[in-house]
Amino acid sequence: MTSLVRKVAAACLGAGLLASSLAACAADAWPTRPIRVVVGYSAGGAVDLIARTVGQQLAAQLGQPVIVDNKPGAGTNIAVKSVTGAAPDGYTLMLAANALAVNPSLFKPAPYDLAKDITPVSLVGRVPVVFATREDGELKSLAQLVTAAKGRPNALSLATPGNGSTPHLAMELFAHTAGIQLRHVPYKGGSQALTDTIGGHTEIVAVNALEAAPLAKAGKLRVLAVMSPERSGVLPNVPTVAESGYPGFEASVWYGFFGPAGLPQPIVAKLHEAVQKAIESREVREQLAAAGGIPLPGPTAQFDKLIKSEAARYGQLIREAGIQPD
């Protein structure tokens, strides 16, 4: 090796070590100012409430305020874009749900690239989607729903919070699994879908457990099945879809934190550790339980794998069923 080559190599090595040292120092100092957590839904909803509960725990651990910034609209694409366009410094994050993995297939052109535009940090938890009907309706079980749908293809009306929503996609997945056709009636949110089902305007509704449980307890709604792998804590007497004759079937609303692409690994690790501790707190577990959900602790790789698998699963469904956004 010539003297010039040795000098260049030493300089490059020194630059690399300097960059690594600077990154490590930045991570050690982080955070030095408030952290913004973007939510793609209006205040008061399940994602917003969980973001605020986890945010309080993160603030206590990290020593800086955590501010929830609600940016609803465009199926959460507005919120996602505000994060993917932010500096990768750990001060802008998002608590996302399934729409994060769904939207690149649902919208044309794709609003973002999951492989290039985001850095997964940590899962938080999941809440099951449920099938329900009005309490005095004719359908008493999921088996009866399937039998009725096979006898009258595309006649039974099923309300959801909207085209491309997680309950809509869960309904399409189940219909494909069971070999039935249901007539989809999309609404602008779960509240009106539930109201019209209770009122008899639609026969079935697919929503998350958080929205269905209070109406079921009030005697207005009969929940036929939950789509989580295990029974829901807020609906313990309701069987899962798997228990009802479709082993392995699962469709839940999940929540997880991500940041913009290029988020330094030391900051990702520090954030992940803080989120894991928050998940173990009584406050976060109670908030998830109230929504009918469970915490999902685990490594960052677990969240990354889930995003990829959900994007593939729902992407195929969207293409095959020709699903369009509202």
Rank of each mutant, 00 (worst) to 15 (best):
H176Q: 12
E203G: 11
Q192H: 13
H184L: 14
I198E: 07
G219I: 11
H176Y: 03
G200V: 02
H176W: 00
L221G: 02
S165N: 04
Q192I: 09
E203K: 10
R222E: 12
N208I: 06
V207Y: 02
D196R: 13
A206K: 10
N163D: 10
G219E: 08
S165M: 09
V223I: 14
T166K: 00
Y187K: 10
I204H: 09
Q192R: 09
L169T: 10
G179A: 05
N163A: 04
L173I: 02
V226N: 11
G200M: 06
E172L: 15
H201C: 00
H176C: 02
A218D: 14
A193N: 04
H201R: 14
D196L: 02
V207I: 11
V205H: 11
D196T: 09
G189T: 10
V223G: 06
G199T: 03
A193D: 05
A216L: 03
A170G: 13
L169D: 14
A206G: 12
L215S: 05
L169N: 08
G200A: 06
E211P: 03
L169G: 09
Q192S: 13
H184A: 10
A175K: 09
T202C: 07
R183S: 15
T177E: 14
A193G: 13
G164Q: 06
A170H: 13
T202D: 15
L194D: 10
L194G: 03
K220G: 00
G179Q: 03
V226K: 02
A170R: 08
K217S: 14
E172K: 04
L221C: 08
L182E: 07
L221A: 07
V185D: 09
A212L: 04
T177W: 01
A206T: 12
A213F: 00
G162M: 04
A206C: 12
L221Y: 01
P186T: 03
L215A: 13
N163I: 00
L224A: 06
G162L: 01
E172N: 09
K217A: 15
E203Q: 15
A209W: 02
K217W: 08
L173Y: 01
P214Q: 02
G219N: 11
A178C: 03
L210P: 01
L224K: 00
K217Q: 15
A225C: 09
Q192G: 00
V205G: 08
P214G: 00
A218H: 08
H168P: 01
V223H: 06
M227V: 00
I204Y: 13
A216D: 14
V185F: 05
A178L: 11
K220P: 07
R222T: 11
A225E: 13
R222K: 14
P186H: 07
P214H: 08
Y187Q: 04
F174L: 14
G190K: 07
L215I: 06
H184D: 14
T202H: 15
I198P: 02
G199M: 06
L221W: 04
V226I: 13
P167M: 09
P214K: 10
L210Y: 00
R183V: 02
P186E: 06
A193Q: 03
L173Q: 06
L224G: 02
G199N: 05
I198T: 01
F174N: 04
A218V: 12
V226L: 04
